[in-house]
Design a protein around this nucleic acid. Structure first.
Length: 833
RNA sequence: GCCCGGGUGGCGAAACGGCAGACGCGAGGGACUUAAAAUCCCUUUCCCUUUGCGGGGAGUGCGGGUUCGAUUCCCGCCCCGGGCACCA
C-alpha cells in the first residue's frame, strides 16, 4: 500500500527535473524517493562522486565490507543491513575530511555456486555473470558509496591469477604441503571440507553428514602461525566477540608431554602422551591410544590381536560424525600391553579407544580417572582402578570419588609421594621439572587449530598451480605461466571417486613439464574458496594492474584496511585465514604489516519473526520490494534504527513508517524554513547537543541512538508548528546524509549548494552551546526521588541544598542535620537523614 | 558439558553506578479541515488513594550482596539465542 505521496509522484518528478538551486520556496513538491534516488544514483555515477583519487589522497580511509557471494536469489536484506552499516561509516569518514575508498566485489567461486549451477542445470560460467549483474543492479539501488571502477570478482582470471600466485608463495616458503590424511568428506558435495566447514558433523553447505576419507591433499601450515595468530589478538582493535571466538578456535593448551616406557617384552620403546594435568600423574592408572595410533600394532599382544584389529577397523570405518557426535558411550579394548608410570614405577595397561583423537596432542593420553570426567566414565565401565591424587579442603586420600574431581584451583595433591600438599599449579611445575630431569617429560604447548586443507575435488575454483612430472617430481607452475585458466568443461559434475572433474579432461591436464619439457600432468584439484577471499582487500586498490597482485605505492597508501565491518559468522573462517595469508605475505616481504585490518567490528544478524531467514521458512525479505515501497533511504535508515548494530534485530514492517515520516518532515522543513532573522537560541543549543551526540554515536556505530537523537531534534524543530530557520535545518541535512544519502544530497542542492553534500564538511559543535544553561537536578531523600529542581548549570552543592530545603515536599522529611549529602553536579542531590 | 551474547512497557528499544522507559511503532483523545490526508497538541509500566489538583507504593528474569544510591558492579540460580563440542 503505497503511502500518500504516490498520487503526487509524477508531478513531483516534473518539478524535480526542472528544479534549480534556490527554487525551493516556489511550489514545493512532496518527497518522492524513487525520483530522488534515481536522480542521485545517476549523478554520482556520471560525476564519479564515489571514485577517490587513489594515488593522491592525503587522508586515505579504506572502508571495507565483506563482499557477497552472488547467489541466484539476489541480494539478501542481511546484506543490505551489513553494507548500509559500512556505508554510513564510510560516508561519515568522508564528511570528516577523509578520502574514502569503499570498494565491492563478488566472491563467486566455490561449492555454493557450483551446487546451485548443478541444480538448475546451467553452467556456472553463464550463471555467475548473470547473478553478478543482478547483484550490481540491487547494490546500486541501495545507494552505497561504492567505487565501481574497482569492482572485482574472484572468478576473473586476472584475479585468480594472483590467488594462484599466493599459493606459489606459500609453496616456496614450505607452508603448502601435500599429505595423505583423514579428511572430512561430504558424500553429497563429493568433496573434502575443512574442519571449519563441518557443522555438527554435517556439511556446512548441504547438511549431509560428513564421512572420513584418506586422500592426498594440499594443506597450508597455518598451525605454524598459531602462536602469532594468537598473540596479535591481544592488541588488534577488533570486536571482543570475534577475538574470543578466534582464541577459542586456536585453542592453546599448556601442559606436558610425558614418556611412558613399554615393559617387557617391548622394553626400550615408549609412548608419549600429552596432558594438561601433569600434576595428576600419580593417579594415571592406564594409557589410551587412538585407534589410528602407529604403536597400536606393536603394543598389542598376540592374544589380543583379533579383538584390537576388529576394534581399529570398526573405528576407521565409522565416519567422523558417528564418532564425534551423537551417542558418546565410551568404547575401547585392552591391548594386552603395559607401560610404566614414570612417577610411580607401577605397570599400567594400555588400551585403545576412540575417545582419544589422533589429530590432537600426541594421539595418546595418560588416563587419570579420578580427575578427568571422560577417564572416570571409561574406568567405571571397564573396571579400571580410580585413584585420588587431588583433594579439596576437608577431603583426604580416602575420601571416595563419586565423580571425577576436576577442580584445578582449590585442591591439594595427595597420594603423590614427595609432592603431597602442593597446590595444582605448584604440582604441575614441580612434577614436570622432576620428570624432565629424568628425561621423561617436557613442558609443551598444544593447539587445537589444524592445518588448513585447501584442496577441493571440484570444478568451480582456481586450479592449484602445480604440475607433476614423472622425471622431475612435483613442479610449481612458473609465475609467467599464470593464470592456470579454469577450462570451460560441459561436464563439471563431481563423482564419488574423490577425483576432481578436471581429472577427466586429459586435453587440459596433459602439459609439458616446466623443468624437463616431457609430458607431465597438472594438479586437477582446485583451491578452497576461502583462499580467494583471504586476500581480496589487497587487490581492490590495484585492480587495474595486471602485472602485479597489488601495487606497492597503492598498498602503502591504502593498507592496512582502516575499517572492516562484517558478520561474526566469519570469525573463525575467513577472518583467521585472512590474517594468516597476510602474515605470510608480510614474512615474504610483500607487505609491511602483518595484520590486515586496523579495526574490525562484528555486526549482528537480521532475523525475521524471531527466526533466521530461509527460503524453506518462507520468511525471506526481498530488499527490492521495500526499496520500491519506501525508498532506499528509508530502508537504510530503518534497518539501522531497528536496534543496536552489533546485535542485529528482528525485521518487522511495523516501525518503518516512523522513519519515512522523519524523512518527510525533513523534506518539509527544508522547504518551509525561513532565512530571515535569527535562529532560535534554545533550538540552536539543542542543535549543538544533537551534533555532538550524532557525531559520537555514528563514530562508534551506535546508529540507532544517533537516529533517535536526530528525530528528537526534529521534534524540537517543528514543535507547536513553528517554522524552522535555515540555520537550524541545514546542519541536520548533513547529519542525516550518511544514513539517507539521496534525500540529503537532493535537499542540499535545493538549499543552494552546487556540489554534492559529500564534499561538504561535517558540522562541528560548539561545546559551550552544547551545554544547557539551566539544568534539572534530581533531589533524593535517603536515595528515594522526592522532587526535581531547575537550577543554573554551575550551582554549588550548598546552593542546591538550600533550594531543596525550601521545597516543602522535601523539607517534610527533614530531621535535624543530614547525616550525609551526596551531590553529583548537574545530576542529583541526595540527602541522607 | 564448555565459551560468547541477551532477558527492561502492548511491541522495537534508551539509560558515564545518579530522575528507569529517550526515540519510534501501536493504542486512545484533541486542534486544524466541509471531509480526509498531512501537520501539531495531550495521554499511554502496574497497583493504591483523591471529585479534581495531587499523593503514596511497587517495578528492569529469580535470590542474595556491595553502595547514600544498582538495569548497570559482585556471588548463586532460571530462561532464550548463537558458537564449540570426547581437544586430554
Amino acid at each position: 500500500m503505497p503511502p500518500h505521496h504516490a498520487r503526487h509522484s509524477s508531478a513531483a518528478r516534473r518539478n524535480m527535473t526542472s528544479s534549480t538551486p534556490n527554487s525551493m520556496a516556489a511550489g514545493q513538491a512532496s518527497y518522492d524517493p524513487a525520483a530522488v534516488e534515481r536522480k542521485w544514483q545517476e549523478r554520482w555515477r556520471v560525476e564519479r562522486t564515489n571514485s577517490p583519487d587513489l594515488d593522491g589522497a592525503e587522508h586515505p580511509f579504506y572502508q571495507l565490507m565483506m563482499f557477497p557471494y552472488p547467489s541466484a536469489e539476489g541480494l539478501h536484506i542481511g546484506n543490505v543491513f551489513a553494507f548500509t552499516g559500512n556505508d554510513i561509516h564510510g560516508r561519515f569518514q568522508r564528511l570528516q575530511g577523509h578520502t574514502v575508498f569503499e570498494p565491492i566485489g563478488f566472491d563467486a567461486f566455490g561449492i555454493h555456486s557450483e551446487n546451485y549451477a548443478l541444480k538448475v542445470g546451467i553452467h556456472p560460467m553463464e550463471l555467475i555473470p548473470r547473478n553478478i549483474e543482478n547483484f550490481r543492479r540491487q547494490l546500486r539501488r541501495v545507494g552505497l558509496m561504492v567505487d565501481w571502477t574497482h569492482e572485482l570478482s574472484t572468478t576473473d582470471p586476472p584475479y585468480y591469477k594472483w590467488t594462484q600466485w599466493i599459493f606459489l608463495k606459500l609453496l616456496e616458503r614450505g607452508l603448502a604441503y601435500r599429505g595423505k590424511a583423514a579428511v572430512n568428506w561430504c558424500p553429497s558435495c563429493k568433496t573434502v571440507l575443512a574442519n571449519e566447514q563441518v557443522v555438527n558433523g554435517a556439511c556446512e553447505r548441504c547438511g549431509t553428514p560428513v564421512g572420513q576419507r584418506f586422500l592426498e591433499q594440499w594443506f597450508f601450515r597455518i598451525t605454524e602461525y598459531a602462536p602469532r595468530l594468537l598473540a596479535d589478538l591481544d592488541w588488534i582493535d577488533w570486536s571482543e566477540v570475534t577475538r574470543t571466538a578466534q582464541r577459542n578456535w586456536i585453542g592453546k593448551s599448556e601442559g606436558a608431554e610425558i614418556e611412558f616406557a613399554f615393559r617387557a617384552p617391548m622394553s626400550g620403546a615408549s609412548v608419549r602422551v600429552f596432558t594438561t594435568r601433569p600434576d595428576t600423574i600419580f593417579g594415571a592408572t592406564y594409557v589410551v591410544l587412538a585407534p589410528e595410533h602407529p604403536l597400536v600394532d606393536m603394543v598389542t599382544t598376540a592374544s589380543e590381536q583379533r579383538v584390537v584389529r576388529a576394534y581399529v577397523d570398526r573405528a576407521a570405518k565409522r565416519d567422523l560424525v558417528a564418532r564425534k557426535t551423537g551417542d558418546r558411550e565410551k568404547t575401547g579394548v585392552f591391548t594386552g600391553g603395559f607401560v610404566t608410570n614414570p612417577a610411580t614405577g607401577a605397570p599400567v595397561p594400555v588400551w585403545v579407544a576412540d575417545y582419544v583423537l589422533m589429530e590432537y596432542g600426541t594421539g595418546a593420553i595418560m588416563a587419570v580417572p579420578g580427575h578427568d570426567e571422560r577417564d572416570f566414565e571409561f574406568a567405571g565401565r571397564f573396571g579400571l582402578p580410580i585413584v585420588r591424587v587431588v583433594a579439596a579442603k576437608g577431603e583426604g586420600v580416602d575420601t571416595p570419588l563419586a565423580s571425577a574431581y576436576t577442580d584445578n584451583v582449590g585442591g591439594r595433591l595427595v597420594n603423590s609421594g614427595q609432592f603431597d600438599g602442593l597446590t595444582v599449579p605448584e604440582g604441575k611445575e614441580r612434577i614436570v621439572a622432576w620428570l624432565a630431569g629424568r628425561g621423561a617429560a617436557k613442558a609443551t604447548t598444544t593447539y587445537r587449530l589444524h592445518d588448513w586443507t585447501i584442496s577441493r575435488q571440484r570444478y568451480w575454483g582456481p586450479p592449484i598451480p602445480v604440475i607433476y612430472c614423472d622425471e622431475c617430481g612435483m613442479q610449481a607452475v612458473p609465475e609467467k605461466d599464470l593464470p592456470v585458466v579454469l577450462p570451460y568443461v560441459a561436464d563439471f559434475r563431481p563423482d564419488d571417486s574423490g577425483i576432481s572433474p578436471l581429472a577427466r579432461h586429459e586435453e587440459w591436464y596433459r602439459v609439458p613439464c616446466p623443468e624437463c619439457g616431457k609430458m607431465a600432468r597438472r594438479e586437477t584439484d582446485v583451491s578452497d574458496t576461502f583462499l580467494d577471499s583471504a586476500w581480496y582487500f589487497l587487490r581492490y586498490p590495484s585492480t587495474e594492474f595486471e602485472d602485479r597482485a597489488f601495487d606497492a605505492g597503492r598498498t602503502k597508501r591504502w593498507l592496512p584496511v582502516d575499517s572492516y565491518i562484517g558478520g561474526n559468522e566469519h570469525a573463525v573462517l575467513h577472518l583467521l585465514y585472512t590474517r594468516f595469508v597476510t602474515m605470510v605475505l608480510h614474512d615474504a616481504g610483500y607487505l609491511n604489516f602483518e595484520e590486515p585490518f586496523k579495526k574490525f567490528r562484528a555486526h549482528g544478524l537480521i532475523i525475521r519473526d524471531g527466526a533466521k531467514m530461509s527460503k524453506t521458512k518462507g520468511n525471506v525479505v526481498n530488499p527490492d520490494e521495500y526499496i520500491e515501497r519506501w525508498g532506499a533511504d528509508t530502508l537504510r535508515t530503518y534497518l539501522m534504527y531497528l536496534g543496536p548494530f552489533d546485535e542485529g534485530g528482528d525485521f518487522r514492517d511495523s516501525g518503518i513508517s516512523g522513519v519515512k515520516r522523519f524523512l518527510d518532515r525533513l523534506w518539509a522543513s527544508s522547504h518551509e524554513m525561513r532565512s530571515d532573522g535569527a535562529p532560535d537560541d534554545a533550538v540552536m543549543r539543542k542543535l549543538h547537543r544533537t551534533i555532538r551526540k550524532v557525531t559520537e554515536d555514528t563514530a562508534r556505530l551506535s546508529y540507532n541512538t544517533a537516529i533517535a537523537a536526530m528525530m528528537e531534534y526534529m521534534n524540537t524543530l517543528r514543535s507547536n508548528e513553528r517554522v524552522p530557520h535555515r540555520a537550524e535545518v541545514e546542519p541536520l541535512v548533513q547529519l542525516v546524509a550518511p544514513y539517507a544519502p539521496h534525500v540529503a544530497d537532493e535537499l542540499w542542492e535545493r538549499l543552494g549548494h552546487p556540489d554534492t553534500i559529500f564534499s561538504s564538511r561535517w558540522p562541528s559543535f560548539d561545546p559551550s552551546l552544547a551545554t544547557e544553561e539551566e539544568i534539572e537536578v534530581a533531589v533524593q531523600v535517603n536515595g528515594k526521588l522526592r522532587g526535581t529542581l531547575r537550577v543554573a548549570r554551575d550551582v554549588t552543592q550548598d546552593q542546591v541544598l538550600a533550594a531543596a530545603l525550601a521545597v516543602p515536599a522535601i523539607a517534610k522529611f527533614a530531621s535535624g542535620t543530614p547525616k550525609k549529602v551526596i551531590f553529583v553536579p548537574g545530576r542529583l542531590l541526595n540527602i541522607v537523614w
